[in-house]
Design a binder for these strands. Structure first.
Length: 262
DNA sequence: TGCCAGGCTTCAC
DNA sequence: GTGAAGCATGGC
């Protein structure tokens, strides 16, 4: 087990931020995180500290990048418009929410399922597909080999053919061997070419699956925020290179407020 | 019970 | 290009 000092990091908030659907709470500020075919045990005994049940090498090569701990979130905070009251409040409430860098295939599956869906149902569908809380994530080959009926039994509804065809194209395009895009624009256009992936899901894939932080997913919550506080237009130009992080903070904040917690 | 959910495709216009 | 209907299904 290793113990690390961390800044701008809140395990509980990240678990609640609607970007990961397989984390399992195992105790107070403690989670089992099944990714990369392993299960990491994480605990945050104090705000500036995190414990991880893994080797130093695994932490550096796998988990630190996954948790986006190489990235300076203080710099993002410092660039927020001081006159933007809404964004400042969101930033305060979402202090510690980092944007995870998740495996591409897992991100594609998760967010194809997410469309017009709610988070508890998304989690349940992914759990069923994977066959267990700590099981390895379902492979593209397994999805490609599955019948639509099998996929529907996981509660996918009309999204079943979307996921199935996505698996076929993912395999055909060899994305398991790396996804090379010249930039955010090209990546988003590529994923939107999939049947059943539109602008919002493509942005989620870019942001969480490829770490392209120019992606700014516009779901119903974010649209509502923009309509209420930004006259429908968010100043993306001001936040080039990390707008997606702000989106994550606003999404978290708005849902917490809706639940009466913020 | 009815509205809603980290939306998309399809079809009018 | 914009707008509305239809979509599966369970959470609340």
């Amino acid at each position: 087990m290793i113990c690390e000092r961390v800044s701008f990091f809140d395990l509980d908030k990240i678990a609640q931020s609607g970007q990961c659907f397989r984390w399992v709470q195992t105790g107070e500020h403690a989670y089992a995180v099944p990714v990369f075919g392993r299960v990491l045990r994480l605990r945050q005994p104090a705000p500036g500290t995190v414990e991880a049940a893994c080797s130093r090498e695994e932490w550096e090569t796998l988990w630190k990048p996954y948790l986006d701990l190489d990235c300076d979130y203080g710099a993002y905070q410092a660039k927020v418009d001081k006159n933007d009251a809404y964004l400042k409040a969101a930033m305060t409430a979402a202090y510690g929410v980092r944007v995870l860098r998740q495996p591409l295939w897992e991100t594609m599956v998760s967010f194809i399922i997410s469309q017009n869906n709610n988070i508890p149902r998304i989690k349940k569908s992914i759990l069923t597909l994977c066959g267990g809380q700590e099981a390895a994530f379902i492979t593209p080959e397994a999805v490609a080999a599955a019948s639509l009926e099998t996929l529907r039994q996981a509660g996918l509804g009309y999204r079943a053919p979307y996921l199935h065809s996505a698996a076929l194209q993912y395999i055909k395009d060899g994305l398991d061997h790396g996804a090379d895009f010249s930039g955010y624009g090209e990546a988003k256009a590529y994923f939107q070419s999939y049947h059943g992936i539109g602008p919002k899901v493509a942005d989620c894939i870019c942001l969480y699956g490829l770490g392209l932080k120019d992606a700014f997913p516009m779901d119903t919550w974010v649209k509502r925020i923009l309509s209420r506080y930004y006259n429908g237009i968010f100043p993306l130009g001001r936040y080039e290179g990390f707008a997606g992080v702000l989106q994550q903070w606003m999404f978290y904040y708005e849902r917490e407020r809706d639940a009466g917690r913020a």
